[in-house]
Design a protein around this nucleic acid. Structure first.
Lengths: 257, 257
DNA sequence: GCGATCAGCGGCACG
DNA sequence: CGTGCCGTTGATCGC
């Protein structure tokens, strides 16, 4: 058992020394900001990082049950409530809109409180991102279809950002949307939006190809109905670069007419 | 400083006793699964929850730098590497696809390792969710437009789930998409998809209204071009229920013709 | 279980 | 800054 005043000192020290504070104890949590929430008593872990990040974790699930992002101003105070003492740790943050956001963690008892210096300059290197897949495809669009030539990557249209813009052997525009996992309705809608925009702006025939390892049945139907195409893409995540493993054209030129 | 064997015992004990283990120390992290990643040496916090949740946190940012969800099988072992000892904590998980996913955290030194029992039956109550806003609107669609009558809530069409389906005074179908924050292109695309589907399935004139506190300029343009409508919704998050504060019809019946 | 969508999404990159 | 969109998204709800 740790006393509230000790714990307060731990938090204060962490804040002033650029350390990360860990508190474990029984607490209730109130939040008000973009939404509002209440969490009644229970044992939880509170993480206060040196950048203001504030995380309340329960014993299950990945996501923090209450949180505040970098930039939050954290403070701790020992208070009286119903004749009993409690430690209140508060995180305040100003939203982009100007409104205030606040979390209060009310500790009724503490199992643990300590501050740690976390020296860390390393950055995560990820392999297998959509961006990387897109780059690889860009290098050899012939994998998708012979005669396909790249025009532009990540081109911004009014309605969003097109992953790859290309031109087929008949000089038709080809919009390519890449997904690193099973593509659903949202992916098709996105692609349709781009194709729609481009075919209206440029006065030119425009095709749309969805490239993904899988596609849901509904999404495939919607593709077909919209005259769009699907290209199955298999890849392997590996170091140092994702490898495109197998490629299979599932449907060719549905819109050919 | 904690010894590796002590730390291993802490993790083992936590796993068998349904506790949450916290480890702080210098480590490198490898991940391979849906994607792959490498993180070189640095001081981090490792959280191992009783449901298998596995979180590696750096000293900044909200999101865990490496993680594994509930159901992961965690193990700890003291190993030799380049003539030096290290503690390797591993989380394995089978993906829905059947493939394996694995994280390895290689600790080179430890500041701290301890297991905590987190008793917690409480559930978070959130106010101001989209669902709640939708319910409130459903209770009084006249706020949006006089004569609007609810037909169905959360009705599933093949292409997704419509928030609110209603009928206006002229017996036209009205699809209402509710957003709790600034609506962007995606929201408009979603609404357009539903309206499109419904107007084709039922042989009936169909309107679409996007209800949100704000809308981005691009999204508004796309709404207009698609003959869809926007209704500005102001609400207040508060306990016990979100309150709809002010309502303002920004554009009426763009599709009236 | 898969599919679709929401989330106080978070984070990033680009205008 | 906002806007758009990816994410090892996670979490939820409905089928």
């Amino acid at each position: 058992m740790i006393s509230f005043s000790e714990a307060k000192q731990v938090v204060d020290h962490a804040l002033s020394a650029g350390k990360t504070a860990l508190l474990v104890g029984n607490c209730a949590v109130k939040y008000e900001g973009r939404a509002a929430s209440k969490l009644s008593e229970g044992d939880r872990l509170l993480v206060v990082k040196s950048d203001g990040t504030f995380l309340v974790h329960q014993s299950k699930k990945m996501a923090a049950i209450n949180y505040q992002g970098p930039g939050a101003v954290v403070s701790a105070a020992v208070e009286q409530r119903d004749g009993a003492e409690e430690l209140v740790v508060t995180a305040r943050r100003k939203l982009p809109t100007g409104a205030l956001e606040r979390i209060e963690v009310h500790f009724h008892s503490l199992q643990f409180a300590q501050a740690f210096l976390l020296k860390d300059d390393a950055e995560l290197k990820v392999f297998g991102s959509e961006r990387q897949l897109s780059d690889l495809l860009m290098d050899d669009l012939n994998l998708i279809e012979p005669g396909l030539r790249p025009l532009q990557k990540e081109s911004d249209v009014r309605k969003g950002t097109i992953d790859i813009l290309a031109e087929d052997f008949r000089k038709r525009l080809v919009v390519i949307e890449v997904k690193r996992r099973t593509a659903g309705l949202d992916a098709v809608t996105q692609l349709a939006r781009y194709v729609d925009e481009l075919s209206k702006r440029k006065d030119r025939q425009t095709r749309g190809i969805l490239v993904a390892p899988e596609v849901t049945p509904n999404a495939l139907k919607m593709l077909e109905r919209g005259g769009l195409e699907f290209f199955k893409l298999d890849y392997e995540v590996s170091n140092p670069s994702a490898k495109i493993k197998g490629l299979e054209k599932k449907q060719r030129e549905l819109s050919e007419f």
